[in-house]
């Protein structure tokens, strides 16, 4: 869980953000922009895959986002990635930022994926739509430390081919031997030669799935229960399933109350939850 006030701003004010420089800003779909970022003023960004930040623009506000890069990249280059989908006032201000501009940031926040528990095991990541962004931190981490993990399977579903994110990564993963990558779209266009349908159809292509596999699920709220039902068919225990949840998070530090599910704060106790720990919590899935 959180380490206390290890990332607070001036005066110990947990709500005062730090400054981040936009290194690259690439519009990757009609609504999404992929940012490569670097901390300013000598600040460090030490994070775990699956952790989040509150990214913002002064005068507009902040939004919670998961790291889209692996800490292994940040160690090498000093940069990290976020993807912003334009859906409202704050995200509109964020996507207008250009290289050289300043973004504000508080974090890392939240717990992240329990990486150590995944090591030495088969891993399956099921990502729907923009759910590929936070899971990419783990995907890239696994690929950078491939020997630490056994079989690695990745499912990615998007609404249309045009809405696929990280197309350069997808090209690499399609041909890669170190990841068994499977993809599907809800609605094809004339150029799409792949599978069409919902993400759960990809489970039909699995001959087997080791019940010991550690599974990560991240996608639109509707997706979770259907994917979990498929995993039950392969006898994957609830302890091995990790869900990465989205909620409204204003403060990111377990105070403002918006993300609360029962006695859990998604921003602080999550956003990653072991399914066995929240399956009986109403309002969670």
């Amino acid at each position: 869980m959180c380490d206390g006030n290890n990332n607070v701003g001036q005066d110990g004010n947990i709500l005062l953000p730090k400054e981040v420089e936009v290194v690259e800003a690439k519009k990757v779909t009609a609504s999404e922009t992929h940012f490569v970022l670097k901390m300013k003023n000598g600040d460090a960004m030490d994070y775990k895959p699956g952790q989040i930040v509150e990214a913002g623009v002064l005068g507009y506000g902040e939004v919670p986002l998961g790291f889209a890069s692996s800490p292994t990249q940040t160690e090498k280059t000093g940069t990290f990635d976020l993807v912003v989908r334009e859906v409202g006032k704050v995200t509109k201000a964020l996507v207008s930022l250009q290289p050289g501009d300043t973004m504000t940031m508080r974090g890392p926040l939240g717990n992240g994926f329990p990486v150590e528990e995944f090591e030495g095991n088969d891993v399956l990541i099921v990502a729907g739509g923009i759910g590929l962004c936070p899971t990419r931190s783990m995907i890239k981490y696994i690929l950078d430390k491939r020997d630490d993990f056994k079989k690695f399977t990745l499912f990615f579903g998007s609404r249309t081919p045009a809405e696929q994110l990280f197309v350069e990564d997808l090209d690499v993963w399609r041909g890669a031997e170190d990841v068994d990558y499977k993809e599907i779209v809800d609605n094809a266009d004339e150029n799409w030669k792949g599978k069409v349908g919902v993400i759960t159809q990809l489970f039909k292509e699995l001959d087997e799935l080791n019940p010991e596999t550690k599974v990560i699920i991240c996608g639109p709220p509707i997706m979770y229960k259907f994917v979990i039902a498929e995993l039950k068919g392969f006898d994957v225990p609830d302890e091995n399933i990790f869900v990465d949840l989205e909620r409204r998070m204003k403060c990111g530090v377990g105070k403002c109350g918006h993300c609360q599910i029962n006695d859990k704060y998604v921003c602080m106790d999550g956003p990653v939850f072991r399914f066995s720990e929240i399956k009986d919590l109403e309002e969670a899935i």
Partner: peptide
């Protein structure tokens, strides 16, 4: 519980971030 909002000052380059009861 609280909400957090930003507001611009008249100078258009300055402003405040505040929280209010929610």
């Amino acid at each position: 519980c609280f909400d957090v909002q930003d507001e611009w000052g008249l100078g258009a380059s300055n402003g405040k971030r505040y929280r209010r009861w929610d």
